[in-house]
Amino acid sequence: RSLKHLCRLKIRKCMGRLHLRCPVFMSFLPLPNRLKAYVLY
């Protein structure tokens, strides 16, 4: 697996499933929209 994929998995694990599904939580993250979309992919 690529480093990019492993990073996405780690971020998702740290955030938890409930936060990933909450659009309000995701909108408050201080991340560029492209990065938010990548994490959610």
Rank of each mutant, 00 (worst) to 15 (best):
K4R: 07
Y38R: 03
K13A: 10
R17M: 11
C7K: 02
Y41W: 11
L35A: 03
Y38C: 02
M26A: 08
R21K: 09
L3E: 07
V39P: 00
F25A: 06
L3N: 02
V24P: 12
Y38F: 03
L31P: 03
P32F: 15
P32G: 06
S2W: 08
L20M: 08
L6M: 10
P23H: 05
F28W: 13
R8L: 11
I11W: 10
S27G: 08
H5S: 11
R12W: 06
L6H: 11
A37G: 05
R34Q: 03
Y41T: 13
L31V: 08
R12H: 01
H5R: 05
L3K: 02
L31Q: 01
L29H: 00
K36Q: 04
R21I: 13
F25V: 11
M15H: 01
H5A: 07
C7S: 04
P32S: 04
P30T: 14
M15V: 07
C22A: 08
I11G: 01
L9C: 12
G16L: 12
S27W: 07
C14S: 07
L3P: 00
Y38D: 01
L9I: 11
C22M: 13
L20D: 14
L9T: 12
R21F: 08
R21T: 07
G16W: 09
R12E: 10
L20Y: 01
K4W: 11
S27E: 10
G16Q: 15
S27I: 00
L18T: 02
L3M: 07
M26G: 11
L40M: 07
L31A: 05
S27N: 10
H19R: 10
K13M: 08
L35H: 00
L29P: 04
I11S: 01
M15I: 12
H19M: 06
R21G: 09
L6D: 13
C22K: 02
F25P: 11
S2Q: 10
R21L: 13
K13T: 07
K10G: 09
A37C: 08
L9R: 06
R12K: 12
R8M: 13
L35I: 06
V24T: 13
R21C: 05
L35V: 08
P30S: 15
L9A: 10
M15P: 01
S27D: 09
S2I: 14
K4D: 00
P30L: 13
L3Q: 01
H5D: 05
L6A: 12
R17H: 12
R12S: 06
P30C: 13
L29G: 04
P30V: 10
M15R: 02
R34W: 10
P23W: 14
L29N: 03
Y38Q: 03
I11M: 11
L29F: 03
N33L: 03
M15C: 04
I11T: 01
L9K: 06
L6Y: 11
P30I: 06
K4V: 07
G16D: 12
K13S: 09
L20I: 04
S2A: 04
V39D: 00
V24W: 13
S2K: 09
R17D: 09
K10Q: 08
M26T: 10
L18M: 08
Y38W: 14
F25G: 09
R34M: 01
M15K: 01
L6G: 05
R17N: 04
F28K: 13
L6F: 09
K4L: 13
N33D: 11
F28E: 14
R8P: 11
Y41R: 15
V24M: 06
C7T: 06
R17K: 11
L20E: 14
Y41V: 15
H19D: 05
R12D: 09
K36Y: 04
G16S: 13
P32W: 15
L29M: 02
R21H: 05
L6E: 13
Y38S: 03
L20W: 05
C7E: 04
K4Q: 03
F28I: 10
C7M: 14
V39R: 00
L40W: 09
L6W: 15
A37W: 02
H5E: 10
R17E: 12
C14P: 05
L40V: 07
A37T: 09
L20K: 12
L40A: 08
S2P: 02
S2T: 06
N33G: 13
L29V: 04
R17A: 15
C22V: 11
F28L: 12
L35P: 00
R1A: 03
F28M: 07
R34P: 02
L9G: 08
V24Q: 14
N33W: 02
L9S: 10
F28G: 08
K13Q: 12
R21W: 14
L35N: 01
L40G: 04
C22F: 11
C7V: 14
M15F: 07
P23T: 14
R21D: 07
K4A: 11
K13I: 08
P23K: 15
F28H: 13
Y41M: 14
V24D: 15
R8G: 10
L20T: 11
F28Y: 10
Y38E: 02
C22W: 13
F25T: 05
C14K: 07
R1L: 12
H19A: 13
R8C: 10
V39E: 00
H19L: 11
C7Q: 02
N33V: 04
M26V: 08
A37K: 11
R34H: 03
F28V: 07
G16V: 08
C14D: 10
S27K: 11
I11K: 00
G16F: 07
C22N: 01
R1G: 09
R21E: 02
V39S: 01
L31H: 03
L18S: 01
P32Y: 13
R21N: 12
H19K: 12
A37P: 00
H5P: 02
S2M: 15
S2D: 14
G16M: 04
F25W: 11
L18N: 00
K36E: 01
N33Y: 02
L9P: 00
K10D: 04
L29E: 01
G16I: 12
L20R: 04
M15G: 04
K4P: 06
K36P: 01
M26D: 10
H5V: 00
C22E: 03
H5N: 08
C14A: 14
L35R: 00
M26H: 12
L31F: 04
G16H: 10
R34L: 01
R17W: 15
N33K: 06
L29T: 03
S2V: 04
L31N: 09
P23N: 09
L35T: 00
R1N: 12
C22S: 05
K4N: 04
L18C: 05
P32Q: 02
Y38V: 02
C14E: 09
L35W: 11
S27L: 00
C22I: 13
C7L: 15
L6V: 06
L35C: 07
R34F: 07
V39L: 08
G16C: 05
M15Y: 01
S27V: 01
M26R: 09
P23V: 15
H19N: 08
N33P: 10
L29R: 04
M26S: 10
I11D: 05
L31K: 02
L18R: 00
P32K: 06
F28A: 06
K4G: 07
H19F: 08
L9V: 06
P23F: 11
R1E: 09
P23Y: 14
K10Y: 13
C14H: 04
R8S: 07
K36W: 09
N33R: 11
R8A: 12
K13W: 07
R8Y: 14
P30R: 15
H19Q: 10
R1S: 03
M26K: 09
C14W: 15
L18I: 14
N33C: 07
I11E: 00
C22P: 08
L35Q: 00
L20N: 01
P30Y: 09
L29I: 09
C7W: 12
I11R: 00
F25H: 03
K10M: 15
N33I: 03
L29A: 04
M15T: 03
K4M: 10
K36V: 09
K36T: 03
L31G: 05
